[in-house]
Amino acid sequence: MSIQHFRVALIPFFAAFCLPVFAHPETLVKVKDAEDQLGARVGYIELDLNSGKILESFRPEERFPMMSTFKVLLCGAVLSRVDAGQEQLGRRIHYSQNDLVEYSPVTEKHLTDGMTVRELCSAAITMSDNTAANLLLTTIGGPKELTAFLHNMGDHVTRLDRWEPELNEAIPNDERDTTMPAAMATTLRKLLTGELLTLASRQQLIDWMEADKVAGPLLRSALPAGWFIADKSGAGERGSRGIIAALGPDGKPSRIVVIYTTGSQATMDERNRQIAEIGASLIKHW
């Protein structure tokens, strides 16, 4: 067993022997301040990774656009098919120029040779490549099948209805392509620590998230040296922004954090800054 596999296998073990965790309302004060600064709703939840206990939450059962955070769930569904012998990570998928959609920095470079399922998941999570996500959605049967996968996990809230990039439209009061912070946090925890996926697939999923290259201005910008984070960000229309993450000190994750916002007129930089400040408060009061 590799060191990384050992780390993920012992996530519940280490967490069980940690000192009790206590909620700190100071972080919620910052979440509410972010709402004021952005002029928009902000949803927040913080779960203990081992027990699933909610440590703090704000608007945990209000719907927010998922945006690209759905790509972690998508690759979880792909990995479940791999575990069941219905898919192979090494299978190569070929596609054409007509398949390319807006923001496809990886797939646009491989029109000639195609990409493997493993490479597509890596591109979808680490670079948020939209064509990679659409190609992977095709392998599982489309958005409705991802929703069905989530329902089978016990998540009857999260739903995907459309493809990239239309799913980022974020129309107010439109339930399409949305989740709730509580539902997303619980589902992410199941994917990373539950028995739904094999140990190898859980490790692969967290490795992809740990290698995320496009979430630097968010929670990662607030992390002290030595902290662990595996995350996936999302951005959408109407001032929408979000991030889902597993993080913790001492090089291992111990909490799940989900943050979503929508309806702001603020710039992307300002949305990023507010999420980073929430992260800084979380870490300060850990």
Rank of each mutant, 00 (worst) to 15 (best):
Q86I: 12
A9F: 12
W163Q: 09
R241Q: 04
L38I: 10
V21I: 08
R255E: 03
Y95E: 01
G194M: 08
I243W: 04
P181D: 00
V101A: 10
N272R: 03
I45A: 12
Y103R: 03
T198I: 06
A215F: 03
G234N: 01
L218D: 03
T131Q: 03
A211N: 12
I125V: 11
E145Q: 14
A215K: 05
A215Q: 05
S122Y: 14
D129K: 00
R271T: 11
F64Q: 02
L205D: 00
T112Q: 15
G114T: 04
G248R: 02
S281E: 14
T178D: 02
L197R: 05
N50G: 14
I243A: 04
Q86W: 10
I283G: 04
T131M: 05
K232W: 00
R220S: 04
L74Q: 02
R202F: 03
V31F: 03
A15S: 15
I259W: 03
L120H: 03
I45R: 03
L49E: 04
L219D: 04
F14C: 09
M115G: 02
V257W: 02
T147K: 08
I206A: 14
E108V: 13
L135D: 01
D207K: 12
R255S: 03
V42C: 08
I243D: 02
K109N: 12
D161M: 05
I11P: 05
L146G: 03
I11V: 12
L73Y: 06
P217K: 15
S254H: 14
A211R: 14
R91T: 08
S80I: 10
T147I: 08
E108K: 12
F14K: 02
M184R: 00
L19G: 14
L191P: 00
Q274H: 12
T179P: 00
D129I: 00
P224L: 04
Q204P: 02
R59L: 03
N134S: 04
T126N: 06
I171G: 12
R41L: 09
T158Q: 01
S221H: 12
T186I: 15
D207Q: 13
L55M: 15
I283Y: 15
V21A: 14
Y103L: 04
S68D: 00
T186D: 14
P165M: 07
D113R: 10
A222W: 06
M209W: 03
E56P: 00
A133I: 00
L38A: 07
A132M: 00
S51D: 15
A124M: 07
K53F: 10
I256V: 14
A222I: 14
P12A: 13
T69I: 04
E87R: 02
F14P: 02
P181Y: 00
R7G: 11
H5C: 09
Q203F: 08
I140H: 04
L223A: 10
A246F: 11
I256H: 00
M1Y: 01
K284H: 09
E237G: 14
N50M: 15
G43E: 00
Q97Y: 15
C18T: 12
P217L: 08
W208F: 07
D174G: 05
L146F: 12
V106K: 07
P143K: 03
S68F: 00
